[in-house]
Every structure is written in structure tokens, then in C-alpha cells.
Amino acid sequence: MTLVYRPGDSVAHRLDPRSKFAVQASFVVAAFVYTTPGGLVWLTALTGVLMAAADTSPIATIGELRYLAPFLVGAPVLQGLTLGTPWFVVADAVPPALASYRILLVLFVSAAYVRTTPVRASRAAIQRTVPGRFGRFLGVGVALVFRFLPLLQRDLARIRDAQRARLGRQRSIRDRARLLAVAGFNRAFRRADRLALALQARCFAWNPTLPPLRLGRRDLPALALAVGLSAAALYGAI
């Protein structure tokens, strides 16, 4: 299972998407400023609190991020290696190791956002934050990407199944990639043409009605945290 929204009633579920986004963004900035052992201890504790507030399991999140492991472990190892004795310099490997750990924390916090924020709310937040037609384009486009991603994934999986059933695995990688790409793009464009027709038939407009968003009293702690993290980052950077 990949990182997706799960309905629930945790503290984070009840927050406005904009305040959660503010916490996330300020956390990233603070993590970049305080990439020291001491700073990372505090940020680890904060990550724990945020994940608990979002009812998100760190172990399940690690499982979903395992494909990043070669990069996270590889960077410090590669930096520590030297040609000639002593072959591995621990001091060289420490900064990249801290950086890798920082990335892990940032990924945890963003996983908590993704788990607790429905797409409709994110779309409304985008459209209300980014003004004008550009914001509306982003809002509509992002909603369409969410809608069509599973369909196109299924299209591609079907194409690969069909290839496999016809002994496609015995072809060269070049042929397999070409055939998958041709069929994938053709289906996507056919869907796009049908979608455009359907949108026109339904009076596709620049000014549709959006779900209400409300920044309320319960968002205050989150906003305060975002301001605090930003202030700490600013203080540390000066």
C-alpha cells in the first residue's frame, strides 16, 4: 500500500489543510537549519508527537519508504570511502549521515500530512491560496491527476499482463519499453479527448463551487508551532 489518505478522527484529521501545510513547510526549514545531533534529537521528539497526532505508524511508513534506503545509506558510505588506507574515514561520513536522518524525519512528517488530508481539501486549499486562473488550473489539474492516476496505472498493468501472456518477456528491453510506451500514451490521449468532451458538455468553468475550508480555533496550536519552528530556524540561521 502506498502513502494515501485514510479517513479518521485524529487531531490532524480535524485541522485545516493550510495549517498542516504550514507545519510541514516550517519543519523542513527548521530541519535544514538544525542538522546537528542535538537539533535532530529535538526534531525526532517533535516528529513523534506529530505522527501520534496524525495516528500514523512510523513502522508502516518506513515500510513504504524502503525504496529510498539505498540512497539514504549510500550517501554516508560513499562519502566515507577513500582510496588507500584507512579506506573509510568516519569523520567524513558523519555530516551525510546526519543529513540522511534529517531526510527521514521530513519524510515522516509529510507522510502524516498525506495520511490525514483528503484530496478535495488540498485542492480547495490550492485554489484559495494561489490566486486567479493559474490557481484554478492547478486546482482542477491536481484533482484530475488524482482521478486518473489509478486508471492509468491499471491501463499500464493490463498492457504488461497482455505482453506477458504473449511471451513479451522474451523480447528485448527496448521493444518492451517501446510497446508499453506506445500503448500507454495512446490510451492516455484517448482518455484526455473523451475527458475534454465530457468537461465541455458539463459547462467546464473557471469558477466552480468548492468545499468550505475554515481556519478555526483548533488550528491555533498548529499555526503557533509553524511560527515557532520558523522563528527557531531564522534564529539558528543568523
Binding site: F137, V140, G141, L144, V145, F148, L149, L151, L152, Q153, D155, L156, G184, F185, A188, F189, R191, A192, D193, L195, A196, L199
Partner: peptide, 13 residues
């Protein structure tokens, strides 16, 4: 818009 969204989704797929 439809084509841009579908190509974005295809890149993701």
C-alpha cells in the same frame, strides 16, 4: 488542460 493532467498522471503511473 485534459491532456496536461492526463500526461502528468501517466508520468506518475
Amino acid at each position: 488542460i485534459a491532456r496536461a493532467a492526463l500526461l502528468a498522471a501517466l508520468t506518475g503511473a
